[in-house]
Computed example of a mutant assay.
Amino acid sequence: MYARAAIGLVPGFARPDRLPDTMSQRQGVRIDRAHLADYNRVCGFRLTDRLPATYPHVLAFPLAFRLMSGRDFPFPVIGLVHVANRIELRRPIDAGEPLDLAVHAADLREHARGRQLDVVSTAMVDGEVVWRDVSTYLRREGTGSSGGARGDRAEPPPASARWRLTPRVGTDYARVSGDHNPIHTSRLGARLFGFARPIAHGMWSKARCLAALEGRLPEAYTVDVSFKLPVLLPSTVAFSATGAAGTAEVAEAIEATEVRGAAGVAAAAAPEWTFALHSAKSGKPHLDGTITA
């Protein structure tokens, strides 16, 4: 599929001006518990049989990549920018439940910097939709503005935690997710696309933020994230979160989680959260998110 995606970059490769009306599907997908445990370690989750809200995204990734690298897709998949992701976890999912996965593209629309589209993934158990994921991608076209000036940027909220990220964040997540885009794993590959160093996967960043709040989230929730500036590897990032308990209590709980393990933290789940990821050095934003029960 990566070879097919690379061929799509060849000039003169004919493409339609609309999204395909096909749906990629896999039935009866069973969870490999060893892979789930590896994913949980890479992203910072506890080792349990309950799937993190972001885990089905990696199961659906091959279907999404096949769809987006097809000849009937309007843009080359290499070069699309993942700008937002919305996940609806409608109920807890156990690793013993086989999943029926489906992926389709929707809502091709104009944007100030080009065009956007959504890739929609669902997971079903016995005909019930238990999980839904909407990834929004931007195809940059023209010279639209990429955002406000430094003076217009709000000051980042107080940090609840700071994480030092090494280049292994890119290679380890590529291994567990199947997303081996070289901008995440190779300095040369990153430079070919205009980055000084490899950058972290956006979905790793989202998963790491959810892992920091594990044990304090509702049983079912929607988590929305907007991806801002990329996280260069290595770097140090500042995580902030505010829920019903308030920022100070969140920081204390996160510190206890990282020192004693998540099992050592007992706290009531908050129905709503806001969270963010920033550069610890410059305060530049990497990610903004909300969680709603």
Rank of each mutant, 00 (worst) to 15 (best):
6 A>K: 05
8 G>P: 14
9 L>M: 10
9 L>T: 10
9 L>A: 11
10 V>A: 11
11 P>Y: 09
14 A>M: 08
17 D>Y: 00
19 L>H: 03
20 P>R: 02
20 P>N: 10
21 D>K: 10
22 T>Y: 00
24 S>D: 12
28 G>M: 09
28 G>R: 13
30 R>T: 08
32 D>P: 08
32 D>G: 09
43 C>F: 04
53 A>Y: 10
53 A>V: 13
54 T>M: 14
55 Y>Q: 01
56 P>K: 00
56 P>Y: 08
57 H>T: 13
58 V>E: 03
60 A>W: 00
63 L>M: 12
69 S>L: 13
70 G>K: 03
71 R>V: 15
71 R>T: 15
71 R>P: 09
72 D>W: 05
74 P>N: 14
76 P>W: 04
77 V>W: 06
78 I>S: 03
79 G>R: 03
84 A>P: 03
86 R>M: 00
90 R>L: 04
90 R>T: 04
92 P>I: 04
97 E>N: 00
98 P>C: 07
99 L>K: 00
102 A>I: 04
102 A>G: 15
103 V>T: 08
105 A>D: 02
108 L>I: 02
109 R>N: 05
110 E>M: 12
111 H>C: 11
113 R>G: 08
115 R>N: 11
118 D>W: 04
118 D>H: 03
119 V>T: 04
119 V>F: 00
125 V>D: 07
126 D>Q: 11
126 D>E: 15
129 V>F: 04
129 V>M: 10
129 V>H: 01
130 V>S: 02
133 D>H: 12
134 V>G: 01
135 S>E: 01
138 L>P: 01
140 R>Y: 01
143 T>H: 07
147 G>D: 06
149 A>K: 04
150 R>N: 01
158 P>D: 10
160 S>C: 14
162 R>M: 08
167 P>C: 08
168 R>F: 05
170 G>H: 12
171 T>Y: 08
173 Y>N: 06
178 G>V: 03
179 D>Y: 12
179 D>E: 15
182 P>W: 07
182 P>N: 08
183 I>V: 15
184 H>W: 08
184 H>Q: 08
185 T>A: 07
185 T>W: 02
186 S>A: 08
187 R>A: 15
189 G>A: 09
194 G>K: 10
197 R>T: 13
197 R>P: 01
197 R>Q: 15
199 I>N: 06
200 A>C: 13
200 A>G: 09
201 H>S: 13
202 G>S: 14
204 W>Q: 08
205 S>I: 04
209 C>T: 12
210 L>R: 02
210 L>K: 01
212 A>C: 13
213 L>K: 07
215 G>M: 06
215 G>P: 06
221 Y>T: 06
222 T>M: 09
225 V>T: 10
225 V>S: 07
227 F>C: 02
229 L>W: 11
231 V>C: 04
235 S>H: 07
236 T>W: 12
239 F>C: 05
240 S>T: 05
246 G>V: 11
248 A>E: 15
249 E>D: 13
249 E>N: 06
249 E>P: 12
260 R>N: 05
262 A>D: 05
263 A>G: 15
265 V>I: 09
268 A>R: 14
269 A>F: 09
273 W>Q: 07
273 W>F: 15
273 W>I: 11
284 K>I: 05
287 L>E: 11
289 G>T: 00
290 T>A: 09
